[in-house]
């Protein structure tokens, strides 16, 4: 059983002050009418427990834009290129939903296996991740179809659960343990743990029953040329919002950005849903239509990643469903995958 502490409401403000001493505090707040993760001002309080933020907090580790290299004006002077130093500021990411935390083990494999990505790795190393058990699953949640759950602590260093008059704080990783050991909190007792267990059970009950997606990679094997991809893409306007809001999508572009006194080589989010994503210099495009791009998005998440690293590229947060401007629902596409007959694929419409 993991170590656990009791955080009564009366100690909450002092605890937040302790977190701020640990590092920059990033937590959900309202900004410009949007519930989202942001860096908190010194006197600002996090707004915990209001459900999922519209966008995932993946930018904390993998920002939408970041300089990788900086260079001076004389662009031909290659020796002048300098590594943009990865952000080494210690930070605390507070109030992460379990589904968002669950995306981190997959992103870790992408960015830190084989070639080590120093930018992502620095932020991972310097960020303490404190998840908050989900108390309000919604109709678009399907974490439980992917083996997750409202109190799943994978990817988090610590897990908070709301209990009567405060929180239960469970330590998950050694980093979480050593941080919590210095916070001067009282150990939780059996009653606190029991309350948390009950809260977790209540949240699980709120989830709509759903068929597990385990093993769907086997089902996808014979469906590469199935008409279902074109059907899924019919309404799609290729805006890419699903990928931007997804906590797991990690495709990026690298571009050089000229500035007044030099320039930067910048990495920015990119998306398989865009026609330009794979187009060759010759004009040839291996994924020539939106059906092929939908197929890539589903195959990457549910077939290629399981084959390569044994993890799905989806945590079931449902953001791609709630943010889609034409109401495309990945669950319906996955249902179509389940129902699909491989022999229909031989007609090959994509």
């Amino acid at each position: 059983m993991p170590e656990a502490y009791h955080l009564p409401s009366g100690q909450y403000d002092a605890w937040l002050a302790t977190l701020r001493r640990h590092g920059r505090l990033i937590a959900p707040v309202m900004r410009e009418g949007e519930y989202r993760f942001d860096v908190l001002a010194d006197d600002e309080l996090p707004m915990l427990g209001r459900g999922l933020t519209r966008r995932s907090p993946k930018w904390v580790f993998f920002p939408q834009h970041e300089a990788m290299l900086r260079f001076r004006r004389q662009a031909d002077d290659y020796a002048s290129a300098e590594v943009a130093q990865p952000n080494n500021t210690p930070q605390v990411l507070l109030g992460v939903a379990p589904c968002d935390a669950a995306s981190l083990p997959m992103l870790d494999r992408i960015f830190m296996d084989n070639y080590h990505d120093p930018y992502y790795a620095a932020r991972r190393r310097n960020t303490l991740v404190i998840a908050l058990a989900c108390a309000r699953p919604t109709s678009t949640c399907f974490c439980h179809a992917l083996g997750g759950g409202p109190a799943d602590a994978a990817g988090a260093d610590l897990l908070l659960t709301v209990i009567d008059g405060g929180y239960l704080l469970e330590t998950i990783t050694p980093a979480g343990q050593s941080a919590a050991a210095g916070w001067g909190l009282d150990p939780a007792d059996g009653d606190h743990r029991e309350q948390a267990t009950r809260a977790h059970a209540v949240a699980v009950e709120k989830l709509k029953p759903i068929e597990s997606l385990a093993g769907i990679e086997a089902k996808l094997e014979g469906l590469f040329n199935h008409p279902l991809w074109r059907e899924a893409a019919e309404k799609c306007i290729a805006c890419g919002t699903c990928t931007y809001n997804c906590p797991e999508c990690h495709c990026f572009d690298i571009r050089d950005l000229p500035l007044a006194d030099g320039g930067e080589r910048v990495r920015g989010w990119d998306a398989c849903m865009y026609a330009q994503f794979t187009v060759h210099a010759s004009g040839h495009n291996p994924r020539p239509d939106q059906g092929a791009r939908w197929r890539q998005r589903i195959m990457h998440k549910f077939s290629y990643l399981p084959a390569n690293i044994g993890l799905y590229g989806c945590v079931g947060c449902g953001r791609c469903i709630t943010s889609c401007p034409v109401r495309l629902d990945i669950r319906q596409v996955l249902d179509a995958v389940r129902r699909a007959l491989p022999e229909e694929a031989s007609r090959g419409t994509v």
């Binding site: 992408i110 960015f111 084989n114 070639y115 990505d117 990690h250 495709c251 990026f252 572009d253 690298i254 990119d270 398989c272 994503f277 794979t278 187009v279 060759h280 210099a281 291996p286 890539q296 195959m299 990457h300 077939s303 290629y304 084959a307 390569n308």
Partner: peptide, 24 residues
């Protein structure tokens, strides 16, 4: 093979053919 690529180190996610990455 050649496919469009950016990072060349298996991260940027665009040169794959099925689960194989042309760059890696």
């Amino acid at each position: 093979l050649e496919n469009r690529m950016k990072c060349g180190i298996g991260k940027c996610g665009r040169c794959n053919i099925g689960h194989k990455y042309v760059c890696l």
